[in-house]
Design a protein around this nucleic acid. Structure first.
Lengths: 339, 339
DNA sequence: GTGAAAGCGCTAACAT
DNA sequence: ATGTTAGCGCTTTCAC
């Protein structure tokens, strides 16, 4: 008896089948304690018999909260993000939140559209991983829901952030190369991608501190294979090529390694190369890239924690977590050739 | 005048501010044509002034459709999926759908929980990318919403699928190696991951067809770096190691390459190695892996198309799209050593 | 411990 | 072309 008239069974169908009120069904489904064992089992049985599944949409509407965290991702191809997401999803799950992710192709202004979609879905909070969007867009979003920035530095008071100390990471790299004896250390940068400006600045300052100002050489690149390749082309077509190159991130460093190989230059014998991020790629034994590590899963978990602190009102003021980076020396760096 | 009493502005606030009914506001927001220019601009102005944003949750509740496609992803670390997602998101966006992704760590039965969450959110359809879940779970989900399987073969009538022809791909590999002169061709498999059984079977059959049955050697592995390493350990601790190895996928092939290098074996001089998937990793010049290509973004797009065909009732019967794979010869395969 | 009723923000008839 | 009304499926007071 009493199959639902049409479509999926609702709480009313379950109530009817069990001969109780829908309030009681609601209580049982949410695991309330003040329900007699008898009724509880009755309701549960009816629900199971009907194949009832609570409707989170209706619940969200009445509760005015979705228990959904929106995540905007600028680039799935960079393994860096995969690991951030790992930590993020784990932490969110443990705290009773689901994540709804939107991946955006870098070129378009699709970021703005994806953001609107997430916001219309009434997410409880927003996590932006290395977004390209201008600060204005972030600020205005933060008026609707709490926002946490990952791997991008924010000067915004209404927004929390987790990032590694990019200038410090860059300085670790310069230090390492300088100690190996390099002076002609160039930098292929990451354009206007998140963190790129900080790495560039860190490189420049660190070179200056070591009185290597005259050897500062920055060429434009991008956080991609192609970015690294182009940088190498520029650097090594010049009359005074560097003996070491700090590339904006691991992905670009891979491109740089390929381009160097194609020119017949050996790494690290002829040129030293350093990346940034310590993605799983860097550890692959054929690549074995010297790079700088960021604790990626931790950053994801921290982002969720910061968000929930805001959501639960535990914190009012902005929190900007800056994580110390760590140099990972592998096989792509060595002292410069004696010449 | 007339800021909302509290919280976010609703359609009623906008109606009040504009001095019209909320139906009219609704029409304007959805871009209906039968609205006078005058009223349209009035409403739009009020909405903008209040910072009104339509509530997709309420809309979903009343329309009984969310325009949301749920995507369950078994492994973000495999670049294979990043590219499938690219196509998937693009196609969904173009058709007016948003995607809500859930990434699941492979070990747990977290897949079941993630599935429940998606279903409670009342997604309009579900795309499962290489799920580990048993067939039963898939079948039961398909009773609630249309389901499309990506990169996993289905025998299920209620579910559509897009996959490459794994047995065929395996056979291309065996053919390539056999033509190079290899006879002792081993296979490190992908355990019970999606597609692994088909690749294993394809390898076995192809070996048999070429009368290489006596050389069939299958060792257990996984779709991961570690899977490949372990396979190599088993194969090369034996008295009669193979001269060529077909590894379950690119990720595992990387592990295999590392393990071989650690044993002092050169690729391809001492051993030939072939992967599967043609992920971006395989193309990296330091790796330069011979592998089998699947059109990843296309598969994502196709998955969405299949789903929408079901959603719009354009098709009733199951559609199982099988894509022909393509061998990509790079630098990890060569004729066997003369011995 | 259980039920009745109001309402979350919106869309979809149906009027006018 | 615009307004009125009745829900969508649930949670939440508030009675009993």
């Amino acid at each position: 008896m009493s199959a639902p008239k049409s479509g999926r069974p609702t709480i009313i169908d379950v109530a009817a089948a069990a001969g109780v009120s829908k309030s009681l069904v609601s209580l049982v489904m949410r695991g309330a304690k003040n329900v007699s064992l008898e009724k509880r089992e009755l309701v549960l049985a009816s629900a199971a018999a009907l194949g009832y599944r609570p409707n989170a949409v209706a619940r969200t509407l009445v509760q005015r909260r979705s228990h959904l965290i929106g995540v905007l991702l600028s680039d799935l191809h960079n393994p860096f993000f995969a690991e951030v997401i790992d930590g993020l999803q784990a932490e969110a799950g443990e705290r009773g939140y689901s994540t709804i992710m939107s991946v955006v192709d870098q070129r378009e202004n699709a970021e703005r559209r994806a953001l609107d979609t997430l916001l219309e879905l009434r997410i409880d909070g927003l996590i932006l991983a290395s977004p390209m969007i201008e600060t204005g867009g972030i600020t205005s979003s933060s008026k609707e829901v709490p926002v946490v920035l990952v791997a991008r530095h924010a000067r915004i008071a209404s927004v929390d952030s987790v990032a590694n100390d990019d200038p410090r990471g860059a300085s670790l790299i310069v230090q390492h190369l300088a100690e190996l004896g390099h002076r002609r250390i160039a930098h292929i940068d990451g354009g206007n991608a998140a963190g790129a400006a900080e790495r560039r600045r860190g490189y420049e300052r660190s070179m200056q501190k070591r009185e290597l100002t005259e050897f500062v050489q920055i060429v434009p690149g991008a956080y991609s294979d192609e970015g690294g390749r182009q940088g190498i082309a520029v650097l090594f077509d010049s009359p005074t090529p560097p003996t070491a190159v700090f590339v904006a991130n691991d992905l670009a460093a891979l491109g740089a390694l390929s381009a160097l190989a194609e020119r017949g230059l050996r790494v690290p014998e002829d040129v030293s190369v350093v990346g940034y991020d310590n993605t799983s790629l860097a550890a692959v034994s054929q690549i074995h890239l010297t790079t700088v590590d960021q604790p990626r899963p931790d950053m994801g978990r921290t982002a969720v924690r910061l968000l929930l602190e805001r959501l639960t009102g535990k914190r009012e003021s902005a929190s900007h977590v800056l994580i110390p980076p760590r140099l990972v020396v592998r096989g792509t760096t060595a002292p410069p050739k004696q010449s």
